[in-house]
Design a protein around this nucleic acid. Structure first.
Length: 736
RNA sequence: GCUGCUGUAGCUCAGUGGUAGAGCACUUCCUUGGUAAGGAAGAGGUCAUGGGUUCAAGUCCCAUCAGCAGCUCCA
């Protein structure tokens, strides 16, 4: 960090040129040396890979005799946009402090689409305040004041923040920054903020700003802590980029699967059925059936065995698997064979918490007796654990069930249902398994986050040596599935264990082997992937597919996870070639993730306009007038017999109106039929995308459409011009 | 779950404390047509639910429920 005593430093520019400069030279000086125009457009600099202020003396970054690599960042560089936005966050905070009293600043970072700043202030900010805040920001920007950096040691910094009445900053210096001997501040006019930087040279560089929304947040993400007001905004180097960004948001809104799902009759969620419980309407169900049929056929041809399991299971099974009661908050409450089960459950919980006094205990005993429950082994003098065991034993004998939160325990039981030999491995069990999870109300989101979902779930039981081949086959399958629906922009996130943690089950040797195998397969697959140490589940490493849709948003869909835990817990065994019992490795995998989430994502990806092979209404027959209705019905029967999803528009009105409605309903093909077609046995086919295709024999039209279906053509994806990922979907973690 | 916003016809939405509105969709009638909107009439409402204030509440207040945005969470 500290400047070397050398009297000069060597600086290397991206084109390779080397130059000697005094250590106090700044990136801005270097830019001026090249041209004044460049100097005017410099936003920041990248020095040896780190983004820094353009006015920092470069000598500060010099270590030893190595030349410093310097890249001047201008509005054209992606990294510069982040610097701009963070400076815009400061400008916004400054404007808010001018307009409101008692503002306490929290954090103000950049986000993918802009920036935010969290404030603690007595007054509530509302969207009605945005115009005046924006006006104040514009006033600040117009003054083009520079951002000035200065360093204080911790004590001075603490005092400064205290003098400024910034108690959250004081707290942050005391806690989050307790290991820093000095901290940096930025001053812009009267506004001073504890900040790591970097910043733009002056506020005049901000050419376009807009406040987006106001929302609640929490100090350091702690929901029990102070509630803050988070003001979101965005900023760009020019107004055109801002406009494109706002259009991108509008485009995402137009594609919202909840809007399109309602508009096109795909699915419905209503309070009478229950929050987060999705009704698949006929059209949505047809899309799902197409997806299920496709995947089922594919799995059967790839050596999978279909299985079915019920929607509920004994709680004891989930105790064995370890899912109950540890994840109780996100499960629906157990179903009890007896009315009294729930009471015993609460009773047991209070014993565990130690909140049950003897008076309460007597009342519970009396209540239990009313229900005819006899607990002769329950002694009031016994320990809480002993009492809980008595209650638990009663419950076990009186059956309690859980709506299944995952399919794995059932599939483990299927593995166990028969003796297994190594010759049967790998055993691949698949099921479209419906599971129920009691997600928090605030998490629910259309089809993307629901409480009842169907996973395209399978569990592969294999030997440690087979993991690599199975993993490779699963990756291939997932690639194939994604590409079949026209998703060709994806990468893989490989989650590995944290080498410093001991929370993991399974032997070190197995983990090493598995992680090496996974990495090797991904390297050989040609897929782009990144490794995330410490992100693995405690029971095994995993690979998640991150998919980009056509407007640049990224989604986490398919997942492959290794599991050393469940085979252990369920004591799964197979007989090896050595005639000894061995424990299999289990692989969870789901290329879609869940049918709900996948379909919701597809609705947005295609903006509701599904490719022919997935479309819920592939052809609509449009009679020219009622006189041609009989022929239209006859044509529809022929198309239906050929396996096409077809309807007849029997409404009155002109054919132009019928075409318009069919186009708006996103029907792939229209078959216009009038007297001429009836005469010749033809249809006048109209393509949703290309328009009128002319008159042709019905058989020819059928052949054409079937060809398109069989080849699973994805002919049209309406791409947005805006390529940057502006709206990040809530990337939902693994589904197991 | 937390904070904020919203809830009016099937859908999208107007509605200033004083008789409930529009467009689209729907039904009926007229029109029978050639590749993105033919015409007319009709029907459709416990203004989310429950309280309160008021002579009077869709409108103001409180609670509940639901939706949305963000936060938090996601085996």
């Amino acid at each position: 960090m500290s400047s070397a005593s050398a009297s000069s430093i060597q600086i290397q520019l991206p084109d390779g040129t080397l130059a000697e400069h005094p250590p106090e030279t700044t990136a801005m000086d270097v830019a001026k040396g090249i041209s004044e125009g460049l100097a005017r457009s410099v936003i920041a600099a990248e020095v040896s890979g780190a983004v820094v202020d353009a006015d920092r003396p470069l000598g500060e970054f010099s270590e030893g005799l190595e030349p410093l690599s310097l890249t001047l960042l201008t509005g054209r560089d992606e990294a510069a946009l982040g610097v701009l936005r963070h400076s815009a966050a400061h400008v916004m905070a400054r404007a808010v402090m001018r307009l409101f009293d008692g503002v306490s600043l929290a954090f103000g970072p950049t986000t993918e689409g802009g920036f935010y700043y969290d404030f603690d202030l007595p007054e509530k900010i509302s969207e009605d305040d945005f115009p005046k805040i924006e006006a104040e920001m514009k006033r600040i920007i117009k003054e083009r004041e520079p951002f000035e950096r200065f360093i204080l040691d911790r004590e001075e910094a603490r005092k400064l923040c205290d003098d400024l009445d910034q108690d959250l900053k004081v707290e942050h210096i005391d806690t989050g920054l307790s290991d820093q001997p000095t901290v940096s501040f930025y001053r812009q006019g009267e506004f001073v903020d504890l900040c790591r930087g970097p910043h733009i040279p002056d506020a005049g560089k901000i050419k376009a700003i807009k406040l987006m929304t106001i929302a609640g947040s929490h100090w350091k993400g702690d929901t029990s802590g102070r509630q803050l007001q988070r003001l979101y905004g965005t900023a760009f180097f020019d107004k055109k980029q801002l406009k494109a960004y706002l259009e991108q948001i509008e485009e995402a809104k137009r594609r919202d699967h909840r809007v399109l799902g309602k508009q096109h009759g795909l699915f419905s969620i209503n309070p009478d059925v229950g929050q987060g419980l999705c009704l698949w309407l006929p059209k949505g169900a047809r899309v799902r059936v197409a997806l299920e049929d496709f995947l089922r056929r594919e799995l059967l041809s790839r050596g999978y065995d279909p299985v079915y399991s019920p929607h509920i299971g004994r709680v004891e099974m989930y105790e064995t698997s370890g899912h109950f009661p540890y994840y109780r908050d996100s499960q629906f409450a157990p179903l009890f064979g007896s009315e009294v089960g729930g009471m015993l459950d609460a009773w047991s919980e209070r014993l565990q918490e130690g909140t049950l006094d003897s008076d309460g205990e007597d009342k519970l005993m009396a209540a239990a007796e009313v229900f005819g429950v006899k607990l002769p082994d329950y002694r009031s003098s016994a320990s809480a654990d002993a009492k809980r065991k008595v209650l638990h034993d009663w419950q076990v004998n009186n059956e309690r069930y859980l709506l299944k939160p995952m399919n794995c325990p059932h599939h483990c039981q299927i593995f166990k249902a028969q003796p297994r030999s190594y010759r049967q491995l790998p055993l691949r069990l698949f099921e479209f398994g419906t599971v129920y999870r009691h997600e928090q109300t605030g998490e629910l989101n259309g089809m993307l986050r629901v409480r009842g979902l169907t996973q395209d779930d399978a569990h592969i039981f294999c030997t440690a040596q087979q993991v690599e081949d199975e993993f490779r086959a699963t990756i291939e399958l997932t690639k194939f599935v994604l590409e079949s629906v026209g998703l060709d922009d994806y990468s893989v996130q490989l989650s590995l264990r944290d080498p410093d943690s001991d929370k993991y089950v399974g032997s070190e040797e197995n983990w090493d082997h598995a992680e090496g195998a996974l990495r090797g397969v991904l390297q050989g697959s040609g897929l782009t992937f990144n490794e995330e140490p410490g992100e693995a589940a405690f029971y095994g490493p995993k690979a998640d597919f991150m998919v980009r849709d056509c407007i640049g948003r990224s989604w986490q869909l398919g997942t492959v996870q290794l599991d050393y835990n469940l085979p252990e817990r369920f004591k799964l065994e197979y007989n090896g070639s050595d005639n000894a019992a061995h424990r299999p490795v289990m692989i969870h995998r789901a290329p879609f993730g869940s049918l709900e989430r996948f379909t919701g994502m597809l609705i947005e990806h295609f903006a509701g306009a599904f490719p022919l092979w997935l479309a819920p209404e592939q052809v609509r027959v449009l009679p020219l007038s009622d006189k041609s209705l009989d022929y239209a019905v006859q044509v529809a029967k022929e198309l239906e017999a050929a396996g096409l999803k077809v309807t007849v528009d029997n409404s009155g009105g002109k054919v132009q109106a019928k075409i318009r409605n069919a186009q708006l309903d996103l029907v792939n093909y229209m078959a216009v039929v009038g007297p001429k077609e009836a005469e010749a046995g033809h249809v006048a086919l109209r393509d949703r995308i290309d328009g009128d295709l002319g008159s042709m024999p019905t058989a020819e039209a059928i052949a054409r459409l079937k060809q398109e279906i069989v080849s699973r053509q994805v002919r049209q994806v309406v791409k947005s011009d805006f390529s940057a990922a502006a709206v990040d979907s809530d990337a939902v973690g693994n589904e197991y």
